[in-house]
Structure formats: C-alpha cells, structure tokens
Design a protein around this nucleic acid. Sequence first.
DNA 1: GTGGTCTAGACCACT
DNA 2: GTGGTCTAGACCACC
Lengths: 120, 120, 120, 120
Amino acid sequence: MDFINDTPIYIQIMDKIKSDIITGKLQKGDKLMSTRELAVALKVNPNTVQRVFKELENESICFTKRGMGTFVSEDDQTIEQLKTQLAKEKITQFVASMKALNLGIEDIIKKLRAYEEGTL
Amino acid sequence: MDFINDTPIYIQIMDKIKSDIITGKLQKGDKLMSTRELAVALKVNPNTVQRVFKELENESICFTKRGMGTFVSEDDQTIEQLKTQLAKEKITQFVASMKALNLGIEDIIKKLRAYEEGTL
Amino acid sequence: MDFINDTPIYIQIMDKIKSDIITGKLQKGDKLMSTRELAVALKVNPNTVQRVFKELENESICFTKRGMGTFVSEDDQTIEQLKTQLAKEKITQFVASMKALNLGIEDIIKKLRAYEEGTL
Amino acid sequence: MDFINDTPIYIQIMDKIKSDIITGKLQKGDKLMSTRELAVALKVNPNTVQRVFKELENESICFTKRGMGTFVSEDDQTIEQLKTQLAKEKITQFVASMKALNLGIEDIIKKLRAYEEGTL
DNA sequence: GTGGTCTAGACCACT
DNA sequence: GTGGTCTAGACCACC
C-alpha cells in the first residue's frame, strides 16, 4: 500500500479497512490482522496501527476482544450506514468544490462521463 | 471569508483566488490586493498572505512586480489550464474514492442527482 | 557555514544541500538533519530551515515522511537532472553576460585559464 | 527591454548601459537619453532611472552636466577598466559556483564548448 | 521527536 | 507603499 503525503497515514489505513468492509472483502465478525502484523505488512509504526484500531472502535466499526484481537462489527446496520454515510460525505465535499469552480450539477455529470471515457 | 479548520488557511486563500480567476472575478493582469490590505481584510497575518502570493507565483498563476504589487498572470494558457486541471484533479480523486465504495459511474450520477434534490 | 549577504539565507541553504547531493555527500534516500537540528547547526531560525525543506520538496528534490523527517528523493532521474540542469543554467547565464561584453567563446576560455593561473 | 524578476530593475538597466559602452554602441562623451525619455522608453518609474544615473556617476562611468543631461565618461581608462573588471567579476562568481558542483576548470571548458555547439 | 502552520513584529530593498 | 526575508515563539498533528 502506498501512502499519499497530504493525508495522515492512519486515516488512509482506516479508509482502506472501511472500503474493504463495504466491498465485502471483510465480512462482519472477521478478525483483522494483529497490530504488529499489520504494522509490519504496511511498514508502519505500530503506534499508528494502534490508533487506527482505536478510531475504528470509536466509530463502532470494529470491536476488540482482550487477548483475541480486533474484529469487524457484527451489527449489520452499522455496516450499512457506513456505506451511505461515507458516500454522502464525499459527495457533499465534491459538489461544494465543483461549485466553487462555477460548475453546476449538469456540468459535473458531463465531466464525469467524459472522465469515464478518458476524454477529459 | 470564513476558514475551515482542517485545511491550512493559506491553502484556502489560494483556492479562493484561484476560483476567482476561474470564475472571472479576477481577469488576467489584474492587480491583487497588497499583502497588508489582504491581511487586514481577511484578519490574517501578513506573512500568511505573503506565503499565498509566493506559492501562486511558484505555480505561475501570478507574478510580482517589485514595489508595485502582485498580478494575475497574463498568460491565457496558464489560466485555461488552471480551470481544466483543477476540475480534473477533483474528479479523479472523487471517482477513485467512490469506486473504493463499489459504486460505478451510474451509481455516482444517481446519487449526485439525489443529493441535488435533497433526497440523499 | 557562512552566509553571503546579498542572497537570501534560505536560498543559500538550498544550494548547499543541492550541491551536497550532486557531489554525493548526500545519497538518495538519505535523511536530512531535522528542522531544529539544522537550525541550531546553522544558527538560523527553524522557520528558515522549514522553508528550505518545503521548497526542496516543491522541486521534488526531497520528500517528507510525517513525523519521521525529510529525505533526499529516491528517484535517480530527479537527482541526475539536478546536476545537469543546475550546471546548464549557470553556463547559459554566464555565457550570455560574457557575450554582452563582446567576448566570444574562445575569449572566455582564455580568460578562464588566466583566472585559474591567477594571471587575470 | 524585458526585465528579469530576481534582480533589481535598476541593476539591469545599469548593466545594459555598461554593456553598450563596452561593445561600443555608446562612445565616450555620448549623451544618454534624459531621465524622462528613458523612463518612458523602458516603461519604468523615473525614480528608477534617476537611481541608475546616480549609481553610474558613483562608479564614474557617467557624469552629469546640469541642465544638459548625462554623458558617458570621457576617460578612456575608466572605460577600459570597466570591461576588465566586469569580466573578472563574472568569472570569479561563475567558477566558484561551478566548483560547488564538483566541476574543475577542464570540465567547465568542456561544458562551455558543448553548450556552444548546442550539445549540452 | 518530526514536520506544518500561524502570529507578531522587525528590517530591507525596490518603485 | 510594495513585496521579501528573517527572527521569535507558540501550537498542532503525526509517528
């Protein structure tokens, strides 16, 4: 995994895990890698991974069993919400930034299609 | 102008100026406010504005005449590029993040329309 | 390190680092001194060093790992370019100024040799 | 005349006049344009031209006759010196900067020849 | 500990 | 008055 420089690594790792959950690579109840394993795999400081898990727990996307590891939440609703909410956030932010460029909703869609065809 | 807390002020100011150029509020060759004026207007330290100008100059969006002030580039191409490139960047990033959520182009557009109608 | 008075300190520091890279004192991937260390070593304000790093990053000569430090680029090409380009710039500028004095290439070389022998 | 941004305009104008003297475009005793004329011709603030003349006088390259204008010095020696000294300055500076790049005198000459042939 | 941002205030050179 | 550089000192987020 390559990291972008202008967003905190721990956020990037969180996003990766979230998207794995959403796309189904991680199922509810699945065990995540251990802090140490993940740290080694990602060539990252264990503290950083630690923080990822802590934050995921705060958002109740994961939970921790002492001595057993960290697991994906078993609550279907939480996971469902995750997808909706994440998408909404991104969209809000995106639309705002496009409007600052004087682009209306139809302009945006036109550009999206162009982008998809590689003609942007 | 109100500042968001999670992005550097100087970036927000840069973005504002860029978008003013794109939307035509600022025309090529126009003089920007002086460092000190703008600092007062935005209730920000002059150094911060100074930094904005320096960065804009690095990106050749503006140029500076010693003792005269800072001006919007007179090169049409630069300005044209600005618009295209800025939009493209945002779109690329946005689409990538939506695809990570398993959303295809048509899903995205559907959601955009829903968002616009306030039904998302 | 002694600073010349008529060029910004931060430029002089940048040039020093660049030349260290070119001469091989700094190898690709090497960690630079931390902002604070270097500031102390050079008897300069940390902000000034900070600025140096930022500019070097803009020119993609260095990159930064959050919380880890600043490093020399690992891209061979960038480093290779650095050397060629820096020399070329200086030469272009120099030859231009000599031609303004009505000196042709052979005159220049003659003078260079004389200078080297201390007989200029 | 186009001005470079990173050197004071008045220096650039001075250099132009000096080089005109050296290359013979301006002969000893020749009258220079008036402050106002030159300012208009160069699209520059009259104060700036004023300063140019003052400095040239300080270096005794020009002299001023009240109410008559500014003239190139009539002292052959001064003019002769001008050329030698200017060349020496540039060379000293140039060689120093090339040595910082680990280039010896023969490397420099090689590169100069390459540059002249357009193969650098 | 590391870099990144910001404020405050000073001084300088240029126009 | 304009931009450019620098110092001093503070606070923050990240690793």
